[in-house]
Design a protein around this nucleic acid. Sequence first.
DNA 1: CGGCAAACCTGCGAGC
DNA 2: TGCTCGCAGGTTTGCC
Length: 276
Amino acid sequence: MPELPEVETVRRGLAPVLEGRRLVKVTARRPDLRKPLPVDLAQRLTGRTIVRIDRRAKYLLVRMDAPVVLLAHLGMSGRMLVFRPPLPPFDRHDHVIFDVEDGTQVRFRDPRRFGLMDLAEADAVDEHPFLASLGPEPLGEKFDGPALGRLLDGRNGPIKAALMDQKVVAGLGNIYVCEALFMAGLSPRRKASTVRGARADRLATAIHQVLEAAIAAGGSSLRDHRTPSGELGYFQHSFSVYGREGEPCPGCDCAAAVKRLVQSGRSTFYCSARQR
DNA sequence: CGGCAAACCTGCGAGC
DNA sequence: TGCTCGCAGGTTTGCC
């Protein structure tokens, strides 16, 4: 499901529910997601109070009142859902359950089980294997055209693939890469290292704008994404090209239809007239 | 190191 | 109605 805007939406929904509250019980209803869960997950989190929830790329960082941090990745289909009594029966894909002192229950539900959870030591979170090789945050202060140009330097593959690589920029996925390239007028096939100067400026600006707009809309709800309170994001209505193969290219007079191609096994949507 | 395909797993919509 | 196929917002692994 989730790229950076969806994870940020989840973070903002969970924060008021969990921050400052104590976990009275944590339950792993199966031993693994995409990877094995820590065997002591429940034991180390039960009784802890959540101090703060942060986000790094597509990961949630749940900081506790002890030197331990829960790292969670939603994979493709993961959700964090908040329930209050009376609690509904478990769904078969409710894998990890967090019971809060006030009776609220947060469930990590993930049908495809591409999600991840692990515990990190608080003083070495950035060195955790999940986070260690991530590139910069695209909404961070240091992310601009020149910085993006340097990240793309020497990369001979297509710009689409480079932007999907979390080591280059952390948090983009298929939707927002397609949308940002459209907004910047850059072909998804363009060699990454040629995106420098004014083109890199345009692309960095486009990435920033599309992410901010998507966060403001509560993310994009295609199939799985819900805010923790169950609401839908609505940025999917603002897609220019993603999922719009065959539709007229929006917002310009090129009169071309949106095309689809496959790069690295993923669909790319673009306008061949506008994107060069 | 770069780039790509496949694998991981389940669900859903389209087409027959 | 029911089956098969293709596709899905991500990451990792293994192969060239």
